[in-house]
């Protein structure tokens, strides 16, 4: 088939004229060369290129999808960063408030310490006075301190046992 085509082409290019000489048809030759060049270009360059494109297309599609996802992620990250930024700004404001509160608390603590000191001073002197009074009053009764102590212990014991007996309602737990 190729030979026939070659013969036909040569037949188009070289034609005998009326004098019996063979003439080369330049225009036909150029057309043939162009055609062959086109065929060769198509066969050896374009066909492999198309094949390579077909093979590369799914990978490109995948990459394009990943790229879309990346854009979405980036926009999320952007939103989060904005949020964090706002919170940090708020935190700064809160820290300033806390510092002020701490200063107020410290001031109040100093005041409270002063109050406690003055109260304990007055209480101490009152308690001291009461103890001295009590000691003076009980001087006679404390002639035998050990006996007195044992009486007090016994009284406390009696009271505690009686208290135990009077608080037995704790055992009256209704059934559930």
């Amino acid at each position: 088939m190729f030979e026939e085509m070659l013969k036909a082409l040569l037949g188009f290019i070289f034609k005998p004229n009326a004098a019996g000489e063979v003439e080369m048809q330049i225009d036909v030759l150029l057309s043939c060369i162009t055609l062959v060049a086109f065929v060769a270009l198509y066969r050896f360059k374009l066909v492999p290129l198309f094949k390579a494109l077909d093979e590369a297309l799914p990978a490109w599609q995948q990459r394009a999808t990943k790229l879309d996802d990346t854009f979405v992620t980036i926009s999320h990250i952007h939103a989060i960063v904005n949020d964090v930024k706002m919170q940090v700004e708020k935190l700064d404001v809160g820290r300033e408030d806390s510092e002020e509160l701490m200063r107020e608390l410290q001031a109040q603590l100093t005041l409270a310490e002063q109050s406690v000191q003055s109260i304990s001073k007055s209480l101490h002197s009152t308690t001291q006075r009461s103890i001295l009074d009590w000691l003076e009053r009980s001087e006679d009764r404390m002639a035998d301190p050990l006996k007195e102590l044992s009486v007090i212990q016994s009284e406390i014991r009696n009271l505690s046992t009686l208290l135990m007996a009077t608080s037995v309602s704790r055992f009256n737990k209704p059934l559930s």
């Binding site: 009696n158 046992t161 009686l162 007996a165 009077t166 037995v168």
Partner: peptide, 9 residues
């Protein structure tokens, strides 16, 4: 006094 209270309880 103590025992009576307990018996009552």
């Amino acid at each position: 006094l103590t025992t009576s209270k307990w018996l009552e309880a």
